[in-house]
Computed example of a mutant assay.
Amino acid sequence: MGLLDGKVAIITGAGNGIGRAHALLFAKEGASVVVNDVGGARDGSAAGDTSAADAVVRELTQAGGKAVASHDSVATAEGADALIKKAVDTFGRVDILVNNAGILRDKSFTKMDEAMWDSVIAVHLKGTFLVSQAFVKQAIAQNSAGDPNERKGARIVNTTSVSGMMGNFGQANYAAAKAGIYGLTRTMSIELQKHRITVNALAPIAKTRMTEDLPMFHGVDTMTPEHISPAALFLASDLCGDRTGHVLAVAGARLYAFKIIETPGKFKDEASGVWTAQEIADNWDAIVKS
């Protein structure tokens, strides 16, 4: 028995790296997998090469799994709808969505142009929104049509980043998109609870085609995509229970969580309660102390 027996999982950006590792593990655990990837370089150029997604599908089916390729772009509503339709036409339903598709167009803030900004936001943030919305509509429709005694929720696993949670030099576009995905994850998790849909996120650190030229990964073989996928499997499986709205981070053997906290702060003693700028400066340490 696999953790995902009978489930249909859609994984975007599954032609390489972390997405491919997710697809392999999910299929091993019994899921029917829709392998979505538009192909091309890591900066999003030369899209339209179907070989990456097709190769992963062959790998899964040769191992006895069930899989189909999707070459639709997550950055358009038409592509998102086509992706969900491919899943339903092939496997009859949807149960799991892993939003993993992404590109990089790094440049320092003052040198970044509008095209670099727009393309990264489109794939990461807009893509997560569009595919999730199409997925949720299908999940709600199929759940409403089923036997009330057998209704089960669906699961969404988004992909944020340490860059999005903490910031990173040269990645204003990427960090903004990934921070947006955190906010989107939190809001979706609140709104979709009534539909029994859990929404969580991963913040992975791994050596992949996207990151292999970064200095931190030179000579490193202990932070692989295979370290990330078990966390995705947990969030996509019934082991996750009703946990929702969390960000699970994985860096090699280290597993941890990101949380945004608010400090206790400081109340102004005077009855008016109105702070002056000078008073804020004078009390800064007390205001920001955790």
Rank of each mutant, 00 (worst) to 15 (best):
A277H: 02
R243G: 07
S32P: 06
K266C: 00
L104T: 12
Q171K: 04
G40K: 06
T61V: 06
L202V: 11
L233N: 13
A141G: 03
A23P: 10
I190S: 09
A27R: 08
W117Y: 00
T222E: 11
A41F: 08
I84K: 15
M165Q: 10
T110R: 12
V123R: 04
D72F: 10
A77V: 11
T276S: 13
D49A: 08
A87W: 11
G19P: 15
L83Y: 15
D5T: 01
E262L: 15
F258A: 00
A271E: 05
F258E: 00
I10T: 02
L83V: 15
Q138C: 09
T76V: 13
R151F: 01
L235C: 14
T224E: 11
F258P: 04
R151P: 00
A9F: 11
H195C: 06
F169D: 03
I96A: 05
G15A: 02
Q62I: 00
A154G: 13
M223E: 11
G102A: 09
I287Q: 06
C240I: 00
M1W: 04
H227L: 05
A236I: 12
I181W: 09
A67R: 10
N173G: 08
I181F: 08
K126S: 15
F135P: 11
A253P: 03
S45A: 12
A175T: 05
S272N: 07
T110K: 10
H227P: 01
A80K: 15
K7P: 03
R151E: 10
V136R: 10
W284R: 00
I84A: 11
G6N: 01
W117N: 02
A52M: 04
K266Q: 09
K268F: 03
I140H: 14
G146K: 11
A179S: 08
N143P: 02
T159W: 14
M116F: 03
N99D: 07
F234Q: 08
G44L: 01
A115P: 03
A9P: 02
A154K: 07
W284I: 00
A145V: 12
G39K: 12
G64D: 03
I228V: 14
V247W: 14
G245W: 10
K111N: 09
K178E: 12
V68I: 14
V120R: 11
G153Q: 05
G13L: 10
K126V: 11
A257V: 06
A141P: 00
G167C: 13
A281R: 05
E191G: 02
S237F: 04
K194C: 03
M112W: 01
L248Y: 15
S70L: 11
I197V: 09
N173F: 02
V33P: 10
G265R: 13
A47T: 07
P264W: 05
E226A: 09
Q62E: 09
Q193N: 06
E78P: 15
E59V: 04
K207T: 12
W275H: 08
G2M: 00
L184H: 14
A249L: 13
R186F: 05
A52G: 07
T222V: 11
A154P: 02
L24R: 10
E59P: 13
G265D: 07
A77Y: 09
F258H: 08
V34F: 15
S189I: 01
T263N: 14
